[in-house]
Amino acid sequence: MPLVLLIAWQLAAMRLDAPWLLPLPSRILEQFCHPLRSHFSSGSLASNTIISLLRVSIGFTLAAVVGVCFGLFAGSIKPVRNLFEPILEILRPLCPIAWLPFAIAVFKLKTLPNLLGIEYSRTIFDQVQLGMIFVIFIGGFFPVFINTVDGVSGVRQNLILLGKTLGASKVQIFVRIHLPAAMPQILTGLRQGLGLCWFVIIAAEMMVGADSGIGYLLMYAADNSAMDVVIVCMLIIGAVGAAMNHLMRRCMHRYVSWKGKEF
C-alpha cells in the first residue's frame, strides 16, 4: 500500500511538474538526508524538532505533575470535585490555542532562563518561552486531570470494601487500592495529554510571534513556497506524534497489563 501511494505520488509530481505545489519524493528524501542543513536561516530540521520537543517535555511534565496531583486530590474528596467541576467544565472545551494571546500578554516573550534571572543563557533554553509552556500546560492538563479524577472516583466499591474488611486505614485504602486501581486511567490520561501537547505546540509555533520550532519552520517554509520542507516537517511531526503514542502504549502494556482482563 505505501509503495502504491509512493508511485502515485511520483507520477503525479512528474506530470504536474510544479515543485512549489507537489515536489518529487526524491526531493523529500534528500531533505531527510540533511537534517542539519539550515533553512532560510531559521535553523535546521533537527534543531527545530529538538526545540519543539524540549518545549513539549517541559510543558507536559508540568501538566502531568499538576494534573495527577490535583486529580488525585479532587477525585478522592467529593466536595472538592463539586467545587471545581463548573469552572473546569467551562475551561475544558476551550481550545488551548485560544489561550495563546492571553499567555503572550501575560508572559510577554519571557523565557525559562529569564525566570531564573538570566538575561540570555546562550543555550537552547532561550527558545523555551513561558507563553508556549503555558499553552502546552493547558493542553495537557485537562485530559490528565479528568482521567485521574474518573479513575480515582470510579474504583469498584467491592475493592474498597475488601480493603476495609481486611483492616486498611483510610490512607492505606487510598495508596493500596485507589491509586493502583486508577493507574490505567491515569496512564490513559497521560497518553492523551501528551498527544494533545504535541498538537498544541505545533499550532502555537505556527502562530504570529513564534520564531523557532518545527511548526514555525513549516509555516516559514510554506511562506517561501518550499513545499518539500513543508512536507518533511509534516512527516516529522506525524512520526514524533506516533512515537510518543507508541511509547505510552508500551508503558501501559508493561505496567497495567491487568486492565480489561479483570473478571
Binding site: R156, N158, W258
Partner: peptide
C-alpha cells in the same frame, strides 16, 4: 464476596498476603 474479591493488579501471593501487608 461472590465477585471482585481479589486485587486484579496483584498476583495470588500478594493478594493472599494483602491483609498482612496492611
Amino acid at each position: 464476596f461472590q465477585h471482585y474479591t481479589l486485587l486484579p493488579w496483584q498476583n495470588v501471593l500478594k493478594n493472599v498476603a494483602f491483609g498482612l501487608q496492611l
